[in-house]
């Protein structure tokens, strides 16, 4: 079960090698995304996740906000 985390956890996990994944669409990604994030839009997750993400490293997903 994916664990819910806050921004402090994100910084700690990213420093330890976790991959930060932006699951928004292309327009939102182009406008702004967390520095160093990887773009894997939700609609293409099955296709792009194996190409862009390392399954042996932790993964952190995020979208626009908490709503």
């Amino acid at each position: 079960m994916p664990e819910e985390i806050d921004r402090h956890d994100v910084q700690r996990l990213a420093a330890a090698g976790a991959q930060i994944v932006d699951v928004m669409g292309s327009a939102e990604w182009e406008e702004s995304h967390i520095a160093g994030a990887v773009h894997v839009p939700l609609r293409k997750l099955e296709q792009l996740a194996p190409e862009r993400l390392d399954p042996d490293r932790a993964v952190i997903t995020y979208c626009y906000d908490s709503l």
């Binding site: 921004r7 956890d9 702004s32 996740a49 399954p55 626009y64 906000d65 908490s66």
Partner: peptide, 20 residues
Amino acid sequence: RLESLGFGEVYDYVGSKMDW
């Protein structure tokens, strides 16, 4: 979905981009 695809350590950043 990532977990179901076999990713073993998955977290969700609840606050997301606007919080960051």
